[in-house]
Computed example of a mutant assay.
Amino acid sequence: MTPIRLADVLPEAELIHSRETLENAIERIADEIRADYDGGLPPLYITVMHGGMPFASQLAFALGERGLDLEFDYLHATRYRGQTTGARLAWLHRPATPMRGRRVLLADDILDEGHTLLAIKQWCEDQGAGDVRVAVLAVKVHDRCVEGIEAEYVGVEVPDRYVFGYGMDFQEQGRNLPAIYALKA
């Protein structure tokens, strides 16, 4: 079976949030985080790869402009592995930085049902993190989110459709699009 190319679906995809909207949302989130992280050691800023990378990078720059220093690490845990539906969580890389007693800020692209983010947050807590907060570019609007996970910092809401761009992929394509799109309904 031949995979569907992004170039075949993008012309009919719906633009959900423009680059300007996303950049404004990231600036707002940075203000919120800066207000919450005043003083003390720099938070441990963990990017959830691959999807979280574009958002996390832009947010880190915005936080730096506001005078908030960060200590960087990353993790790679996925349930999708190039598919459009999730399976069992696979850990591809765990952070190397000790978390005991630290304030941890997780940065990811989207909070959909929350299985992955919940497992990541619980793992950070199991490592002794003193406080774990979640920043996401987007939250999908539906009633299927698992209990026990929410994002303290949210950029935008997206509809309950397959979305891609700005870190989110369509069959491992389109993560570097500077906007969020949804497949044709």
Rank of each mutant, 00 (worst) to 15 (best):
T2D: 12
P3V: 14
A7R: 03
D8W: 08
D8F: 10
V9A: 05
E12Q: 07
L15W: 07
L15A: 09
I16G: 00
I16D: 00
E20P: 01
T21I: 10
E23W: 09
N24M: 01
A25R: 00
A25T: 00
I29P: 00
A30S: 05
E32C: 10
D38E: 11
G40D: 07
P43D: 02
L44P: 12
L44F: 04
L44T: 12
V48D: 00
M49N: 05
G51I: 03
M53V: 12
S57C: 06
Q58N: 13
A60G: 14
G67D: 08
G67N: 10
L68K: 04
L70D: 10
D73M: 02
L75F: 03
H76M: 09
T78V: 09
R79M: 11
G82C: 05
G82F: 11
T84N: 12
G86N: 14
R88V: 05
A90K: 04
W91N: 11
H93G: 05
P95F: 04
G101T: 09
R102T: 09
R103D: 14
R103K: 10
L105C: 03
D108L: 01
I110N: 01
I110Q: 01
L111K: 02
E113K: 10
G114I: 08
W123L: 06
W123P: 02
Q127K: 14
G128M: 12
A129S: 12
D131I: 06
D131M: 13
V132K: 03
V134G: 00
A135V: 12
A138G: 04
V139F: 08
V141Y: 05
V141N: 11
V141I: 09
R144N: 09
C145P: 04
E150H: 15
V154G: 01
G155S: 08
V156N: 09
E157L: 13
Y162A: 03
Y166D: 01
L177G: 03
A179Y: 13
